[in-house]
Design a protein around this nucleic acid. Structure first.
Lengths: 143, 143
DNA sequence: TTTATTCCTATTATACCACAAGGTAAGAGG
DNA sequence: CCTCTTACCTTGTGGTATAATAGGAATAAA
């Protein structure tokens, strides 16, 4: 299950996309508009800044803004950076030493295929599409 | 992410399918073959018995066996019963009161579509297919 | 009646989730 | 220079889920 971290991150990205993208939007404003705890959002946004998806500016008139055009962010990218792991099963997490029964495992090919489908799905949706209300229009791999 | 509960359950189902399905297979044997803690498997199997996916028989010569043909179980069914929730996000869990910002939520349609894809994927694979090594042969919705 | 096995009721250790508190650094305006 | 505003940093906290373990009771076959 996708945790609030990834979901909140996505909502913030969409929020910022809808705000136009020129000005720096303070956290306070985002938190209020989205109805999310300000203190918790802080943690989420820290990650997005570290990963260069957002630019943060301190001081009066500061806040956060996108570093690219909304169409240049895929949902997959946002989720992968904020979620601890997007792997469907523990043995596919990157950094895990390969399972000793990998060869004999009857379920591993299924998990691998599933992993690919998830990646394809979320890679096919951009923040811009969500901001414009085009979420849920994915028509399949190769479309 | 799918927890060990669902994964172990699936591996047990496949194991039993591969054993033929006539005799009662003791937990000890399954646990050893699969390399999973016996005591923990017990908990997992309790669910499968309660949900009638397996039949348990106590006493000497007892153990577990499938209640149907392996081709009659879908992976989705097994995962849904053993995993707490297969919903990708909290607001889609069954039993959750609808989110107040559901109408305004830019991401909800995407989550709903994803949920459907996951369901289709795992519903299209049977325990029999996994047991025969046909996991990972899913060719898309409508195939 | 003995033995093998499932079934039942706890308890534990660990980790993660969602969030809160309080302070520090940096940038803008007076 | 002073102050205000804002992002950034460190730490703590209650709750819940995970992945087990422990010890026994019920049941069925030999």
């Amino acid at each position: 299950m996708i945790s609030t971290k990834g979901r909140y991150a996505l909502r913030v990205m969409v929020d910022l996309a809808q705000q136009g993208g020129e000005r720096y939007v303070p956290l306070e404003e985002i938190a209020q508009r989205q109805g999310i705890s300000k203190k918790y959002l802080e943690i989420v946004l820290k990650t997005l800044v570290r990963e260069k998806l957002l630019k943060g500016l301190r001081g009066k008139g500061g806040g956060y803004r996108l570093t690219r055009e909304p169409g240049q962010y895929t949902v997959w990218e946002v989720l992968e950076l904020t979620e601890d792991s997007m792997a469907p099963v523990a043995c596919l997490r990157c950094g895990t030493e390969p399972c000793v029964r990998a060869d004999a495992c009857a379920t591993l090919p299924m998990w691998k295929q599933f992993d690919g489908i998830v990646r394809e799905f979320f890679s096919g949706i951009t923040v811009e599409a969500l901001a414009k209300g085009d979420g849920g229009q994915w028509t399949g791999i190769g479309s």
